[in-house]
């Protein structure tokens, strides 16, 4: 497999010279983006099925066998719908906002390692890059809310931004623990730092369990998912920041939300669940483990949505600022002290 790739690369270099590099990179980008987009489509299907099952319904089952073509049908419908631009809106920002929302969600995949060789770019500050990219996606939301010239959209955007900013801190502190434990900012090296003879006992989930929980919950809040979906609280502000959007522009927000969910799920599996490492020593490490762990985290996201009612806004802020941030700072200190003792075996 690797020889085939290398010979292919050599062939391209001989054929096109320096022009080959951008083309080859584009191919690699497509190889990442296309599956991500496909998983986004089928995550919406999984969401409807899982939530349906938890509400003793059966979910979509009409389009194709078991409703498997439902996301395709939804996509087609949105694609052919008109994009309505409100007359009082700022047209340029209104159009560009959904792209600003989706682009960072996809750009963050650039540093995502799928196994020890399969990674688009081995950035040494990968974690910083990812944090920066996920923070950028908030601009799409605030610009969408502002340019719509609608009070609901604006309120939704304000809520969403305040929420994302608050939870980013807790998330960042949770990651600081991981960085201390792994001694690296490179995502691939973070995974390799969790390799050991004890299988899943070597994963950072074990010493950093509170941080793992905080990270998952903050991840739910980061992606504006239930029970933290104040940004689109139907009962108060209709649909929040994307209330004025329709057609493909709306679909981009949808894609961004789900792409972010998948990203958070992958990050959680890489930071805390040992990425592509096998949970038991006698099975080989492989990409399948990473996909399985990410799917489990995604299932948790859907499970949360099916179970919990939406938070009130002040409760959300209290949880972020008064519980998570003190807790994470405390755990940073605990881990720092712990690492100086011989009891630290990770």
């Amino acid at each position: 497999m690797m020889e085939l790739l290398q010979s292919l690369e050599q062939m391209g270099l001989d054929l096109l010279g320096p022009l080959w590099l951008p083309i080859w990179t584009m191919v690699k980008i497509m190889l990442i983006v296309a599956p991500v987009m496909l998983s986004v489509a089928y995550l919406t299907y999984a969401e409807r099925k899982v939530i349906g099952y938890m509400q003793i319904r059966i979910g979509p089952n009409r389009v194709g066998p078991y409703g498997l073509l439902q996301p395709i049908a939804d996509g087609m419908k949105l694609f052919f719908k008109e994009i309505i631009i409100p007359s009082g809106s700022n047209k340029f920002l209104f159009i560009i906002a959904p792209m600003l929302g989706l682009a960072p969600a996809l750009a963050a995949w650039a540093v995502m390692p799928f196994n020890d060789v399969l990674v688009l770019s081995k950035v040494n500050a990968g974690v910083l890059y990812i944090i920066a990219m996920t923070s950028l996606s908030v601009y799409g939301i605030i610009i969408a809310g502002w340019s719509s010239n609608s009070k609901y959209a604006f309120l939704g955007a304000v809520r969403s931004v305040a929420q994302i900013v608050s939870y980013e801190l807790a998330m960042g502190f949770a990651l600081v623990c991981v960085l201390m434990a792994s001694q690296s900012l490179n995502l691939g090296e973070i995974v390799m730092a969790q390799k050991g003879h004890a299988g899943f006992l070597n994963w950072f989930m074990i010493p950093l369990f509170p941080m793992f929980v905080v990270y998952v919950i903050a991840g739910v809040a980061e992606t504006n998912r239930a029970p933290f979906d104040m940004a689109e609280g139907e009962s108060e502000i209709v649909a929040g920041f994307h209330v004025e959007y329709s057609g493909m522009a709306f679909a981009l927000f949808f894609l961004a939300e789900y792409a972010n969910m998948i990203l958070i799920a992958f990050l959680t599996s890489i930071m805390f669940l040992g990425g592509w490492l096998s949970p038991v020593p006698f099975l080989p490490d492989s990409l399948v483990w990473l996909l399985g762990k990410a799917s489990f985290i995604l299932l948790l996201f859907l499970w949360f949505r099916a179970t919990f009612p939406r938070y009130r806004y002040d409760q959300l802020m209290r949880l972020g600022w008064k519980v998570f941030i003190p807790l994470t700072i405390l755990w940073v200190v605990v881990v720092a002290a712990w690492m100086q003792t011989p009891l630290w075996v990770w």
Binding site: V50, Y53, M54, Q55, I56, R57, I58, W303, F304, A306, T307, F308
Partner: peptide, 15 residues
């Protein structure tokens, strides 16, 4: 709470 929804995931569907 999640245990409750988790149980219902496997319950017989009434649709």
């Amino acid at each position: 709470g999640m245990a409750v929804t988790g149980r219902y995931f496997f319950a017989r569907k009434i649709t």
